[in-house]
Every structure is written in C-alpha cells, then in structure tokens.
C-alpha cells in the first residue's frame, strides 16, 4: 500500500473541488435510489404493524412544543420587522395582518417550520439509525430478511409525511396568534383588523400544502440516508447526525426555491 505523494495547495483545492462534485452526484443518486426503494416498500413491505403510528407519535411528541415555541418567536419578529419596514414608507398598519397571513400560509409556516423539523426530527432520525448501523443492528436486521429500508425508513417516511403537515399547521396557528398580539401591542392594530384573510387565496394554500408535503418527504429521506451511511463508531454517529441536519436543511431551501418559482410562474 503506497501512500500518494503530498499534494500542493493548488492540487489539493482542485482535488477537493472534484471530490465535491463527485460526492454531490453520487449523493443525489443515492438519495433518489433510497426514495424509490422507500416508495416500493411502502406498498410491498412486511414491517410490523403500528411502526408508522409509533414514529408519528415520536415526531409529534418531540417536535410540537419546540416548533410552537420557535414559530411563536418568528411570528412576533416578522410582524415587528415588517411593520417597522412599512412604517418608513406609510405608517398605515391596517394591511399588516393580511400580508402576514398570506406570507405565513405560502412561505413561512411550511419553510421555517420544516427547517426546525429538520433540526429536531431529522437529527433524531439520523442519530437513531446511525447508532443502529455502527452497533451492527442493521446487519442483524438484514440477516433476518428484514430490509432496513422497509423496517426503518418507511415508517419514518410515512409518519413524517403526515406529521409535518400537522405540526406545520399547528405551529403556524401559534405564529399567527403571536403576530397578532405583537401587532396589537407594538402598533395598536386591533385583532379584528389583523385577522384579515382576504389575501389568502387558493394558490397560497396550494403552494403551502405542496411545500409541506415535499419537505415532509425530504426530511426523512435525507436524514435516513445519512444515518444508513454512517460508519466508524461514535465519531461516525456524530458525523451522520451533522450531515443529516445540513442535508435536510439544504433540501428544504432548494425545494422551497423550485416550488416557489414554479407556483409564481404558473400564476398561483
């Protein structure tokens, strides 16, 4: 086994860049493959009954209060910031609530909510599965003809599809309420003026729903992929968990861009 000659800085930067591209394409292929296998096992699997319900409970139980808290803060911050911004132009705050409602349904609720879910739930999934990989539990599953995708990924995938929507709706409601309170306290906007949903139309709801579903699918696929790829003891579990948070967050931001652009272009 010969060691390669030391690289100069230039070469090593090039090598790094090259590796980044290769890793990127390989990663995309692996994610697609995992997604397809997950869909296949969703209909064909032999996992124990109740595993999806268990995961759904875990997701809700772990994330509902955390999301409500962070989204509550986000509601207050955004209403405050946008009212300040508006105040520099025209100090008329009557439409703050209406615009905020539209933005919340279309963008903030699903996206910020999903980013928080990626942190909380994605990291948890990756940590769990990675621990199972490095302690050979996944090998033991395979030895018993239990496909890890069927047993581990599918329940998390299905649970996340449903629960992302549920948790996003719940936490958006909290964000709407805290926003209304902020508008009332800081800018004297009455609740009945704030609670103006006239700007929320079908397109906004459809865009928000599409995003929630897309994020709900992306988080478990990215996180489980990172978990299953783990190797090398406790350091490996740490690396997998980190990678899951980053990959899920990136997926959310990229999906957000494409869904937003798509819905803008088709005029929703």
């Amino acid at each position: 086994m010969e060691t390669p000659p030391p690289l100069t800085t230039h070469e090593s930067m090039l090598v790094k860049l090259g590796r980044l591209v290769i890793d990127g394409t390989e990663g995309a292929r692996a994610l697609t493959s995992l997604f397809l296998r997950t869909l296949w096992f969703t209909f064909k699997g032999s996992r124990p009954k109740g595993s999806t319900a268990h995961q759904a409970f875990e997701i809700g139980n772990n994330s509902a209060s955390f999301l409500a808290l962070t989204m509550g803060f986000i509601g207050m911050i955004l209403v405050y910031q946008s009212a300040v911004q508006l105040g520099r132009l025209v100090p008329d705050y009557s439409m703050v609530g209406a615009n905020y409602g539209e933005l919340l349904v279309r963008e903030l609720g699903p996206t910020i909510g999903a980013l928080m879910l990626a942190t909380r739930v994605g990291a948890g999934m990756a940590a769990e599965i990675a621990s199972m990989v490095v302690t050979e539990q996944v090998d033991a599953l395979r030895l018993c003809a239990a496909d890890p995708v069927d047993f581990l990924v599918v329940p998390r995938f299905l649970a996340s599809l449903v629960m992302t929507l549920v948790v996003v709706v719940l936490s958006s409601a909290v964000a709407y309420a805290t926003g209304a309170i902020t508008a009332f306290i800081a800018f004297d906007v009455r609740f009945d003026v704030f609670a103006n949903l006239s700007l929320v139309d079908f397109g906004d709801v459809a865009t928000g729903l599409t995003k929630s579903i897309a994020y709900g699918a992306a988080i478990p696929i990215c996180s489980c992929h990172c978990g299953l790829e783990a190797h090398g003891g406790s350091a490996g579990v740490g690396r997998a968990t980190t990678a899951a948070v980053v990959l899920s967050s990136l997926a959310i931001i990229v999906l957000n861009f494409f869904i937003s652009a798509g819905s803008f272009l088709v005029g929703l």
């Binding site: 955390f66 808290l69 962070t70 928080m116 942190t119 909380r120 990291a123 948890g124 990756a126 940590a127 769990e128 990675a130 621990s131 490095v134 302690t135 003891g233 406790s234 350091a235 490996g236 579990v237 740490g238 997998a240 968990t241 980190t242 948070v245």
Partner: peptide, 18 residues
C-alpha cells in the same frame, strides 16, 4: 457511547435553534 454522541448533537442543534 455512540448513541450518546447522536443524542448530544441533536440536543445541541435544538438548543441552538431555540
């Protein structure tokens, strides 16, 4: 051990985000 590292990472990102 290894599961502990996973738990810590999770707790840390959650605390940071909050």
């Amino acid at each position: 051990g290894a599961p502990g590292v996973g738990r810590s990472v999770k707790a840390s990102v959650v605390m940071s985000a909050g």
